[in-house]
Design a protein around this nucleic acid. Structure first.
Length: 777
DNA sequence: TCGGTTCAGAGTATT
DNA sequence: TCTGAACCGA
């Protein structure tokens, strides 16, 4: 026991050794949150305060669950298998498998991932002849998931207009379809187990009595339904130990409800609130930046990080002229670090949106620096893997129409759209699955469809007695997938992935051990899940999409969005694109609490860095095919000057003497044509929101061409001479709106107007004859 | 049924 | 600008 708690700081120790009561642990970034969670569990068990079976620990990601399990196994000789540690979805799956009858599900129900769900919705809408222009399937999907995450069934939703009536009808029809086909989507896993526990009193009491300690990680990310689920599981004798950080709540767009933290405190009568504020990750300058920034948020529970690590280096800021030059600078800086002996994998390049990675990748690729981009397709999401899984799913559950349609003609068997339509009609008439309806069709189409059904039946028989990896191997071979990809030009990689699927099955079996093969018990058999290894593997494949295929093992630079970086840490971090509109993102500004969430996102980004933090921005950026002039991000202005080190002049380049002499190392780069700087009246080809300037070539050429040689340029120069002393990209000050960047100039003389991006004040058109503008120098 | 063309849209993401 | 999805012709 001493060994467990000896190395904890006073707050950590307090949290770990709390009495058997509800508790809220406010765990700042880098404050040892996972250590507290796992040590709490180990401490409870070692002191005989709970048996492993009495512990329920919930996380959001499989990665977090795995990490918790790994750390626990290192702390305790116990087999942690008896504990319920997993993701919300994983645990719900376990619950529903164990009580599938009570939950009105077939034992072999399949789990739809987001893509499967969308396909199911499209298919449904087609069968109901619903206009998918007026009701885009994605929107319907969002509606359904949103409702489920609020804990609402179709019947619970109030109908306010015809449009929403359609959505509600689709929701009901979708649920019927899923029920018929024996499939559940992600949100359904949660909702269905909630309903199961809500309706079944003995079952609920059983689990409430069993789980005397419920621990939740990343509590600030819980959605409404997850919170309700926890409330239902927590019985009169359960203690809920919720760990979270309101300052790191960045997932509202996916349903996370920060309000759950306050609700938890209130509804559970939480008396134990522990703040973990000592940070073990970052140096002082970095932490002070984070603290100061987040203080600008008004709705906080309140927390201040501190460290014993010392000040470290100041935070470096670099302002580039263009996005490519920003990338160029990053490249040089990274090279420098590598020459100093830094490992590439200790350096992360963060950005707000995925689109920003392209420019960075281009620079890194050209320079031959290995990098790894997070996000993207993951193993179980790859088309060939999903095809193989569809065969396996059909073998488990022939009613799975989504899987049926996916592979009925893949590889091609001469079953065309018309045959499928006939089959769908027949199935609808008979109220049966597509698989069963194959028997009713006659003619050539019927024969082919029946042959497919027989193929599935045959695969099922042939593999009945085989161990899981051989089942997968057999299906991959006999389904014709391998042969198909052999004839495809770029099929080799796909074949390798199919082989890898066999390995994944073997690995899964080895890890899972005997768990899946235990016999069923009567009554409230909650630990014993009667699942074939195949069914368990299919659940696993749906619930854990696997890694993306990035090359593991090589020492590579880490590229990712700020969101993906949450929970990670690096010695060196570059936060790029710190511009108004990008970070904070313009879409978020309209949203309620959107700006505060962006600020939390910035806070998350800053607190990823251990030793060295770089912030970078660019004056122009190519976005949606237009050159865009952005203001510096307000978040930069919110950082304390004494912790910063500007690598470029603080005021940046937005001056009268663009590209002029004496501007340090970047005077000659990119916009070396400063000579024309005295003015270029861009007539601006307005499009959309008008936030962009330049219509491709005219804007672009102006930037590169220093002299007025072309007729167009001469005209532009003439226009300037007639008295429009401004140019696009220039920073100006306005008495009421503050600083802004000129986006476009229209007209001349008395009619001249300028469009200015005033950042938080918005984008405005001002008449030059009226508005009083000053150059910012 | 494939392959080219056209068009819209372009924010963050786990299960 | 660039991408993915939808669509049409052979």
């Amino acid at each position: 026991m001493d060994r467990l708690t000896a190395h904890l700081n006073p707050e950590q120790l307090a949290a770990v050794t709390l009495p058997h009561e509800h508790a809220l642990i406010l765990a700042g970034a880098g404050s040892g949150k996972t250590r507290v969670l796992t040590t709490r569990i180990a401490w409870l068990i070692q002191n005989g305060l709970v048996s492993p079976a009495g512990v329920l620990a919930v996380t959001f990601t499989n990665k977090a669950a795995r990490e918790m399990l790994a750390r626990l196994s290192a702390m305790m000789p116990l087999n942690p298998r008896g504990m319920w540690i997993g993701t919300f979805h994983g645990l719900c799956n376990r619950l529903l498998r164990a009580h599938h009858r009570d939950a009105a599900l077939p034992q072999t129900f399949q789990i739809l991932d987001s893509a499967d769900q969308l396909a199911a919705i499209k298919r449904l809408m087609k069968s109901l002849n619903i206009d998918d222009q007026r009701h885009p399937p994605r929107q319907v999907q969002q509606f359904i998931n949103g409702a489920k995450e609020e804990g609402l069934r179709a019947k619970d939703i109030e109908i306010v207009d015809d449009f929403n009536r359609r959505h509600v009808e689709l929701y009901a029809a979708y649920d019927d379809q899923c029920q018929r086909e024996g499939v559940v989507d992600f949100a359904e896993l949660l909702l269905r187990s909630h309903e199961l526990l809500e309706r079944n009193l003995p079952l609920r009491q059983h689990y409430q009595a069993r789980f005397s300690h419920i621990l939740i990680d990343e509590f600030q990310d819980t959605n409404t339904l997850q919170y309700k689920w926890l409330k239902l599981l927590a019985g009169p004798r359960s203690a809920v130990f919720a760990v979270g950080d309101d300052d790191q709540s960045i997932y509202r767009f996916r349903g996370a409800n920060i309000g759950n933290m306050a609700a938890f405190e209130r509804e559970f009568g939480v008396k134990n609130l522990v703040k973990l504020e000592q940070n073990y990750r970052s140096h002082g300058h970095i932490l002070d930046c984070a603290n100061t920034l987040i203080r600008n948020n008004t709705t906080r529970l309140g927390k201040e990080l501190w460290t014993e690590a010392g000040e470290g280096e100041p935070v470096r800021i670099h302002e580039a002229l263009s996005d490519t030059l920003e990338a160029q600078w990053l490249l040089e800086e990274v090279r420098g670090l590598i020459n100093e002996g830094w490992a590439r994998s200790d350096i992360a390049l963060l950005y707000r949106s995925n689109a920003q990675s392209r420019v960075l990748e281009h620079a890194l690729f050209s320079a031959g620096i290995p990098y790894r981009v997070y996000g993207g397709l993951r193993f179980f999401e790859r088309a060939e893997v999903k095809h193989a899984l569809a065969y396996l799913r059909l073998m488990e559950n022939a009613a799975d129409d989504t899987s049926f349609l996916r592979v009925v003609n893949f590889p091609a068997r001469g079953i065309g759209a018309r045959s499928i339509e006939q089959l769908q009609d027949a199935a609808r008439m008979a109220g049966s699955s597509l698989f069963d309806a194959t028997a009713t069709l006659s003619g050539a189409a019927g024969t082919k469809l029946q042959a497919f059904a027989q193929l599935i039946a045959r695969l099922r028989q042939e593999t009945a007695l085989l161990p899981l990896p051989e089942v997968v191997e057999h299906v991959v071979e006999r389904s014709g997938l391998i042969v198909h990809y052999q004839s495809e030009r770029e099929g080799q990689e796909r074949i390798e992935n199919l082989r890898e699927l066999v390995n994944a099955a073997a690995a899964f079996l080895a890890e899972q051990g005997v768990d899946t093969q235990m016999p069923a018990n009567a009554g409230l058999a909650d630990d014993v899940i009667t699942m074939t290894p195949l069914a368990a593997f299919l659940s696993h494949a749906s619930l854990e999409a696997g890694d993306n295929q990035a090359l593991e093992g090589t020492d590579a630079l880490q590229l990712m969005t700020v969101h993906s970086a949450k929970g990670l840490e690096f010695d060196g971090v570059f936060i790029t694109g710190l511009e108004e509109g990008l970070f904070p993102h313009e879409n978020s500004i309209q949203e309620q609490d959107g700006l505060e969430e962006e600020r939390r996102l910035m806070y998350v980004a800053i607190t990823r860095a251990r030793k060295r933090l770089y912030l970078s921005l660019s004056q122009t950026r190519m976005l949606h095919g237009q050159t865009r002039y952005n203001l510096r991000s307000r978040f930069l202005e919110e950082l304390p000057e004494e912790h910063l080190k500007w690598l470029t002049p603080r005021a940046g380049l937005a001056r009268n003497d663009w590209g002029g002499a004496g501007q340090g190392g970047w005077g000659g780069a990119g916009w070396a044509g400063g000579a024309r700087g005295s003015g270029y009246g861009n007539t601006g080809t307005e499009r959309g929101s008008g936030r962009y300037i330049g219509g491709g070539s005219s804007g672009g050429r102006a930037l590169d061409a220093p002299t007025y040689t072309s007729p167009a340029d001469q005209r532009a120069a003439a226009r300037f001479d007639r008295g429009v002393p401004w140019r696009a990209g220039q920073t100006v000050a306005h008495a009421r709106f503050g600083e802004g960047v000129i986006l476009a100039i229209e007209g001349s003389g008395q009619d001249a107007r300028v469009q200015i991006n005033f950042g938080r004040q918005g984008v405005k058109w001002l008449a030059l004859s009226v508005a009083k503008l000053d150059p910012v120098a």
